[in-house]
Design a protein around this nucleic acid. Structure first.
Lengths: 337, 337
DNA sequence: ATCGTTTCCGGGAACGTTTCCAGTTCTTTT
DNA sequence: AAAAGAACTGGAAACGTTCCCGGAAACGAT
């Protein structure tokens, strides 16, 4: 079943059918309808390979998600899938570990074949212009604020939430409620660059409130926002005997791990210790107590990422850098002191 | 940069380069090496569209995930991504709502173009042989036990966990610990067919232990394993004044919603009420109390699904039906009575 | 030396589209 | 009524591969 069969069945040329299929003008209404009816009834579907070949482009958008246990970006993939589908593109997805960069590069280049655009989610985006340029397709990066590498702004687009601000406001929330001794659990993945700005936001909020930084209240954990490592780290913190009334964690899942560690050590949340986080994934509303967290607009981030990429692909814009805001969702994991 | 350029640069024909590229015999060692070196140094990448066109097949495997809030199958996608990549295929992913079947069919057919195989994850797989046959590619279905529709076994492959058995064992676990009044929260999505076997397992476990079924302990919730609806349903159950010492939920996330409802109504888990579930997603180890759940082998399911599909694509097998087992992971949400 | 066989290589058709170009018909303008 | 333009249509080249087929060279056996 090819375009030729349709043409023959309608008594028109292949060109005409192609025009109908692609909504080109220059075809009479009657013929157009006849062809459309035939296409409809026959269930004919154009061969994409042939299309791509002659157009020298495909309808595939590559999406690369870094980081294994990242529920936030995993959730975003659902929105992205939907948007990509509705725009008529096709999503080619790669989940990759945060550490194996060769796979990353491979995933990109191997598929360079004929992708229309690339979307990076999470993790560090530490590719040089030299690496990315030859790929020759637009890309949008949706990740932590300071993880955009050394590229110049015009080389790519981005969608992000201001990590510094978000962290600042989270910690400020605690301070406003009377907390002075606020611990922080920091993943050290990718040389800590992912958590760097959130950490700086934490430090800034303390400083602006005249609270001295106490290194005893900082615990670094291996891995990249992994729950087991966070649980272990939080446990170390508690067992160190450090004195704190609240914990700031950088993601909802790590907050859950920290809460678990606290409770397993007999510290009740929020009575004995408050917990605040960043993300706003759905399950965080159903833990006990409900997590107080800075909700990042995951759907908007996903939607905008795709739209910006589509705009770049279709030449409607060259590059954009969209900065969105998180909002505080008060749960039960934080209390006044 | 095409195969012609390589051929010209090497002073050989296009055919020869193609043979080298595809590891065909009938090319001398010296020429082979020369061409390979040239391919290597030039960074030439064959045009996939042209390849697909002439081979009338692509390297794309379609993955369709049904159900919006389904963390279990979302988690499986990561494993699947990895397996597909490592086998040299490309994953084309569609997340779709469980209710809009047109989209479903569209997602399949629209991409029918040249997929090598299809992988269905979650939800009902209620497509007739007539719908699926014209797609003409092998497919593997990884979902709830009884959700395979009316197809004959040889028409497709499947990977699943015996829902009846799993539910039976979960409920039996409660019974063995002394529970007699066991409530169940049942999503009514897709005419309840998704939850049907788990429900039957529940009923059977009661029956085999001589415990009469009490309709007051059954609550049906709208949606498909959604947390808000489950929370509402569990709340209704509690407020109805029904007398129960344990709740059986069909997934980890619904268990979390049920636990939340219990605690919000002043019922402590597990002191006042035990909770047991099915899934074993990662966060369920970090809620408070840790969820006691029937862990489904998510990684194995994902891996095997891909491998079976690859076997079908590469004609190593026609169809297989793999049935895996869940195992109980004892957490803190269940106690002896 | 002849003949078959093997090994290697190139020519060219084919895959199913899109799109340029030229041609035909229809409409409008002068 | 003729010319000019617009509207529509078909032919055919092109996209970059794969792979069949036929031919050339090399080799071994008679």
């Amino acid at each position: 079943m090819t375009i030729k069969d349709i043409a023959k069945a309608c008594g028109v040329s292949v060109s005409t059918v192609s025009r109908v299929l692609n909504n080109h003008p220059d075809v009479s209404q009657s013929v157009r309808e006849r062809v459309q009816a035939m296409v409809e009834s026959s269930g004919y579907i154009p061969n994409n390979s042939a299309r791509d070949l002659v157009r020298t482009q495909s309808d595939a958008i590559g999406v690369v998600v870094r980081g294994r246990g990242n529920l936030f970006f995993s959730a975003m993939v659902k929105t992205i899938s939907r948007e990509i589908d509705s725009l008529g593109y096709t999503m080619v997805l790669h989940f990759i570990e945060s550490d194996d960069d060769e796979v990353m590069a491979g995933a990109i280049l191997e598929r360079e074949k004929k992708l229309r655009g690339l979307l990076f989610l999470g993790g560090r985006f530490d590719y040089s212009a030299e690496t990315l340029a030859p790929i020759g397709v637009p890309f949008v990066c949706c990740t932590y604020t300071n993880c955009f590498g050394t590229l110049s702004d015009s080389d790519y687009s981005s969608v992000s939430v201001d990590d510094y601000q978000t962290a600042y406001r989270a910690v400020k929330t605690l301070i406003d409620l009377g907390h002075r001794r606020i611990a922080v659990v920091l993943p050290d993945c990718a040389d800590r660059s992912i958590s760097e700005l959130r950490y700086k936001g934490y430090r800034a909020a303390l400083r602006d409130s005249g609270i001295p930084f106490d290194a005893d209240l900082l615990v670094e954990t291996e891995g990249c926002f992994e729950m087991p490592e966070t649980y272990a780290g939080a446990s170390r913190l508690i067992e160190s005997g450090a004195d704190f009334t609240a914990v700031f964690t950088l993601s909802d899942t790590t907050a859950m791990a920290a809460m678990k560690a606290l409770e397993d050590h007999g510290r009740r949340v929020p009575e004995d210790c408050s917990v605040i986080a960043i993300d706003g994934i759905s399950v965080s509303e159903y833990v006990n107590p409900t997590l107080t967290t800075m909700v990042q607009p995951v759907e908007e981030m996903g939607r905008e990422s795709v739209h910006i990429l589509a705009d770049m692909i279709e030449q409607r814009c060259s590059s954009r850098h969209l900065r969105l805001e998180a909002r505080l969702r008060a749960g039960g994991s934080v209390r006044q002191i």
